[in-house]
Nucleic acid binder design. Structure first.
Length: 569
RNA sequence: GGGCCUGUAGCUCAAUUGGUUAGAGCAGAGCGCUCAUAACGCUUUGGUUGCGGGUUCGAGUCCUGCCGGGCCUACCA
């Protein structure tokens, strides 16, 4: 039995996430956490909302709410949706928690004492009308290169040239439209990542088993241009973790907060503290401090590719630089993007399906199955309604759901709603046990390697074996001359339902629970020896014919959804 | 501009460190079954692996050029 610490990239507080966000981190993390638990491992699965930064302040202002109130509300909304998708976090925390404030400030002190923080004076665009410094992308103007009128301060969307906000002709605030922008001097703290480049690179070089996507992004940042750059870790904002050295003031930094990308990963640790304080567990340090028992923890992070630099470099720099015995990540699973019907999901244009809408349409298992079995692992992937409809109908309704239906209904009509007695396994049954054992071993291997699509394919193949067996055994025929053998065959069929429910639970937890409930086999263990596992339901055991496990998606509703989610939420 | 990833059957994807006739699901065709959610099973059609060179006994895999798609490029998070 191993100990697994698992974290999903923490979703930004600003609004409801779409299915692309979901499949990029939270959902595969949940799959892995559920699998590890099912295998009897000790798991701590953490996630949180990322609540600081300019976008949160602006979203709150737009909603006419104080930012703290806005974040509290949105946290509740996201927590409810996470529950709706059956994301089994041990704790869903908040980066704005007191725990994270304390820990972030403590890290800052340690890093400062290690000589890894320097102060930098720089000038930034300030908008008196907005009363705030403007991040580059919140400034628009005419591109000096191509004349495009809506070029952003960081890059021109038209000619793709990278810009500095001061280069823009007639710059204006995208927040208020104000044009009276001025350059103001401001002082910030920088994390001296450049000083840690060699350590970070040596560490990354030991991670030969990481996905290419993960290491190639990390190496790019390490070696691009002049190498790894120091990064500003403070901002001129109100909402965030106040810049302090632990609990002492930081002269010259009054009124400033830490940059979200400094405090957000630290929330992974703070979240464990929140978990303990919420009474959900004990001894958070056992998961996070290698001097307090975390040495044997395997730590796996899940994230979309846009988050990779922060998890491979910035956060490790924070941890290594502190000189303290914090647990470093062991494996980083990163994902590409999910596109929507030939384009991108777009939060701003409301294109695609968002988490709340998805759950209004169909139960979570449908989405979990499709998203996970099409996870964007090797490439960007694409959601289309047609593909969704055929995959879900075929895999879930026909192959798995119908299997449970045909077995239980046949049994009810010939033997009643209890497991029938009689007969013994023959060659065909022994062959099935052998085939299933091999297939489940393959499934387990893929799950352990976190090869999500391949695991889904192996699981589906295990379901298919049941249908193949039934077709060959044909209990509806054997029943006529040899009811004993038919009883054995259908008893095996009933046990297959139980087995499928157990091994499918990480992907489709609701369906799994429904089937186990119908078979009166709640709490069934992960299979270890199929020969006996497939005789777990003994003659005389009572069961019920389950309701339709997965209904089919019809053409009309599919077309309806297709039209409804094409844009403008 | 630079870097990385990618292009395999109509569609979505595989192909163990270069190694036999490139595989699977869906869709299509045919047959079978009748327990079941018109479900299931079997058989089968379908690929000059984006294009052109090269290395090799052997290339989907390695090198090179071109064409197409995507991502990142450090103050959005």
């Amino acid at each position: 039995m191993a100990r697994h610490l698992i974290t999903s990239a923490i979703p930004y507080i600003n609004g409801i996430k779409h299915l692309g966000n979901l499949v990029g981190s939270q959902l595969p993390a949940d799959l892995y956490a559920r699998y590890c638990r099912a295998r009897g491992h000790e798991v701590l699965f953490l996630c949180a909302t990322d609540e600081h930064g300019t976008p949160a302040e602006l979203a709150a202002a737009k909603a006419g709410q104080p930012v703290a109130e806005y974040c509290a509300e949105m946290h509740a909304v996201q927590a409810k949706l996470a529950e709706g998708f059956r994301l089994s976090f041990d704790h869903f925390g908040r980066s704005s928690s007191p725990q994270n404030h304390r820990l972030t400030q403590a890290f800052a002190k340690s890093l400062d004492e290690a000589g890894l923080i320097r102060e930098v004076s720089e000038t930034q665009m300030y908008s008196p009308q907005d009363g705030r410094f403007l991040p580059d992308r919140y400034i628009e103007g005419t591109c000096p290169n191509c004349g495009f009128e809506s070029a952003r301060g960081d890059q021109c969307d038209n000619c793709t040239k990278q810009l500095d906000p001061v280069d823009l002709i007639e710059p204006r605030s995208t927040i208020s439209g104000a044009t009276n922008l001025e350059m103001r001097e401001t002082k910030h703290l920088f994390l001296r990542q450049s000083a840690m480049k060699d350590d970070l690179e040596a560490w990354i070089d030991t991670k030969t088993d990481w996905p290419v996507l993960t290491t190639s992004i990390a190496k790019k940042w390490l070696n691009d241009g002049d190498g790894l750059q120091d990064r500003g870790i403070t901002r001129d904002l109100d909402w965030g973790v106040p810049v302090q050295r632990d609990d002492a003031p930081w002269p010259g930094m009054e009124g400033k907060v830490f940059y979200v990308w400094f405090d957000a990963p630290i929330e992974y640790i703070a979240c464990a503290q929140e978990w303990e304080e919420a009474g959900k567990g004990t001894d958070w340090a056992r998961w996070w401090r290698t001097d307090k028992g975390a040495d044997d923890v395997r730590y796996t992070q899940f994230m979309g590719k846009d988050n990779v630099p922060f998890h491979t470099l910035s956060f490790p720099a924070t941890i290594l630089g502190s000189g303290e015995p914090w647990k470093l990540v062991d494996y980083i699973k990163s994902f590409n993007y999910l596109n929507y019907e030939g384009g991108q999901f777009s939060t701003s244009r409301g294109r695609g399906v968002f988490m709340d809408q998805a759950l209004e349409i169909l139960p979570p298992d449908y989405w979990r199955w499709w998203l996970l079995s099409h996870a964007p692992e090797s490439n960007d992937a694409e959601f289309t309604w047609e593909n969704f409809q055929t995959s879900v109908n075929k895999d879930l309704a026909d192959v798995l759901g119908n299997f449970a239906s045909r077995v239980t209904k046949f049994c009810r009509s010939k033997f009643g709603e209890e497991v029938p007695a009689g007969g013994t396994f023959g060659d065909r049954e022994r062959q099935l046990v052998a085939d299933l054992s091999a297939k489940i071993a393959e499934y387990e291997a893929q799950m352990e390697a976190i090869e999500v699509r391949k695991a889904a394919a192996a699981l589906r193949a295990a379901w298919v074996l049941g249908n193949e067996y039934l077709q060959e055994a044909a209990p509806w025929s054997t029943f006529k001359e040899d009811p004993e053998t038919a009883a054995m065959q259908i008893r095996l069929g009933l046990n297959l339902i139980r087995l499928y429910a157990v091994i499918s639970a990480p992907f489709i937890p609701d369906a799994s629970a429904q089937l186990l409930g119908a078979m009166k086999a709640e709490g069934a263990d992960w299979p270890s020896d199929l020969d006996s596992d497939l005789q777990a339901l003994v003659p005389g055991h009572i069961f019920a014919v389950p309701d339709v496990t997965f209904r089919k998606i019809g053409d009309a509703e599919r077309e309806d959804w297709q039209a409804r989610f094409s844009g403008r939420r």
